[in-house]
Computed example of a mutant assay.
Amino acid sequence: MNPIMHTIVVGILSYVALIIVLRVSGKRTLSKWNAFDFVTTIALGSILATALTSTQVSLAQSVTAFIVIVLLQFVITFTSVRSRGVLKLIKSQPTLLLFKGQYCDDAMQRERVVKAEILAAVRERGMADIEQVHAVVLETDGAFSVIASAGEYDSVLEGVEGVSSR
């Protein structure tokens, strides 16, 4: 088979196989990204690119590689639900960036976040004054959560780095 035809046939079949593997693997594979999910996605993309461009890699090898990567992700996420150590290894902790209108400068510097990014998240929430904000948290996927008002116990901030010191 000539290289162009190989790319077309293997590309279509690999793409279909990847979609099937991702659908079977569940929603977690396509969830918002943390570093672990990013690596998995890059690996899957690399496998697909190799399948498309290399005549020396068979379709069976590519599909096997897809399955191995998704199975590894499943095993690690399955284990992380049951082991605090594995969870800490693959998932970072959310970080408090602003609390009761006051910036957490040390946390902002450590997470490489500037005030403008926090203000943008607050504006996105439709708030006009930083004093209205109870907390801003940098989540494990890189998103900002803006909490407008406090409850009696701040239970939504449980597990957020920097909360216990407040």
Rank of each mutant, 00 (worst) to 15 (best):
M1H: 15
V9H: 02
G11Q: 15
Y15C: 07
V16Q: 02
V16A: 05
V16K: 02
I19V: 07
V21E: 00
V21H: 01
L22P: 01
R23P: 00
R23D: 00
S25D: 09
K27H: 15
R28M: 02
L30A: 12
L30N: 08
K32W: 03
W33V: 03
D37I: 02
F38W: 11
T40N: 12
A43F: 02
A43V: 06
S46H: 08
L48F: 05
A49C: 04
A51D: 00
A51G: 15
L52C: 14
T53I: 14
T53Y: 14
T53D: 01
Q56W: 13
L59I: 10
S62A: 15
V63Q: 00
V63S: 01
V63Y: 00
T64A: 09
A65I: 00
A65N: 01
V68K: 11
V68A: 12
I69D: 00
L71E: 03
L72S: 09
L72F: 07
Q73D: 01
V75A: 09
I76K: 08
I76L: 09
T77F: 00
T79P: 03
S80H: 02
S83R: 11
S83T: 08
R84I: 05
V86D: 00
V86A: 11
V86N: 05
L87F: 07
K88D: 10
L89G: 02
K91M: 03
Q93M: 05
T95I: 07
T95M: 06
K100S: 09
G101I: 07
C104N: 04
C104L: 03
D105H: 15
A107G: 05
Q109T: 15
Q109F: 13
Q109E: 10
E111L: 05
R112Q: 11
R112C: 11
V113P: 05
V114T: 14
K115E: 15
A116E: 15
E117K: 15
I118K: 05
L119S: 14
L119N: 14
L119V: 11
A121Y: 03
V122F: 10
R123V: 02
R123A: 08
R123F: 09
E124M: 12
G126R: 13
A128G: 10
A128E: 08
D129A: 07
I130E: 09
I130G: 06
Q132I: 04
V133P: 04
A135Y: 01
L138S: 10
E139K: 14
E139G: 11
E139T: 10
D141G: 11
G142D: 14
G142I: 08
G142L: 13
F144I: 13
S145T: 15
V146T: 05
V146R: 13
I147T: 06
A148S: 09
A148W: 13
G151M: 13
Y153I: 06
D154R: 12
S155R: 09
V156L: 11
V156P: 13
V156W: 08
E158A: 07
E158S: 08
G159C: 10
V160E: 07
G162D: 10
V163D: 06
V163N: 03
V163Y: 11
R166V: 07
R166Q: 09
